[in-house]
Simulated scan of single mutants.
Amino acid sequence: MSKIDTIIFDLGGVLIDWNPEYVFLDVFNGDQEKTRWFLDHVCTSDWNENQDAGYPLAQATEDRVKLFPEYEKEIRKFYGDWENMLGGAIHGMVIILRKLIDSKQYKVVALTNWSAETFPIAQARFEFLQWFEAILVSGEENTRKPFIDIYELALNRFNIKPENAIFIDDNLRNIEAAKTLGIHGIHFTTSEKLKIQLETFNIKI
């Protein structure tokens, strides 16, 4: 196995807890079934991912209101109240991030699906986002994971050899795409499991 010299982190779901249910459970008075239906059929993950690839939030909102006028108020809350969808840092992961950086053995960067319009909110809230050597934000590049071009962009911009890099993401689809370019992948579930997974690459936390 090639020596690992680069760790690439996803952010949402790995280092930052983000969940639209934090807003919409309140909107629907704690009704989980209504909340789930709304997020599965109206403000869907596919729709939100389009904004992660650079589509303007305001236009996306108007598009959705035209499709579901009966849910106009709720749709406008998606980005209008977006900040309250941020839960907090995933603390075990922040500790791992700090240890990897402090070891000075690895280039530590981030590759995230995130709207360029909302990412500054996260940057202001989470100090650890300043620790990375670099962050590639999908919304700033008008593409997103799992499209291959965003991985190629990260490899070229950050001077990464794929065989020397590990990509950590909570979405298996994104991991599989990275692997097609020769990047090693770890499907993130918990910080404790990640420590064990990193050991298979001779990385001890």
Rank of each mutant, 00 (worst) to 15 (best):
D26T: 04
E117W: 05
F28N: 01
T189Q: 12
E72C: 06
F126D: 00
K99I: 03
T6D: 08
L153W: 03
H184L: 09
Q130M: 09
E33A: 15
T35W: 06
N50G: 12
R125W: 08
A165G: 05
W18D: 05
E163V: 11
P56C: 11
I160E: 05
R98L: 03
L136N: 05
A177K: 09
I96L: 15
I96R: 00
L11E: 09
K73C: 07
G185I: 07
N84F: 13
A124R: 15
G13P: 02
L181C: 02
F132S: 07
L111D: 09
G185Y: 00
M93Q: 10
E152K: 13
A177R: 04
E163P: 07
T143R: 09
V14Q: 10
Q105S: 09
N171C: 11
D10W: 03
P56Q: 11
R125Y: 05
Y55L: 12
I150M: 09
I175N: 10
A58N: 12
E192Q: 13
K34I: 11
I183Q: 06
T180Y: 08
T35Y: 03
D46Q: 14
V42D: 06
E72M: 05
L194T: 10
S191H: 14
I96Q: 06
T61A: 03
E133S: 14
K104A: 01
V14E: 07
L67G: 04
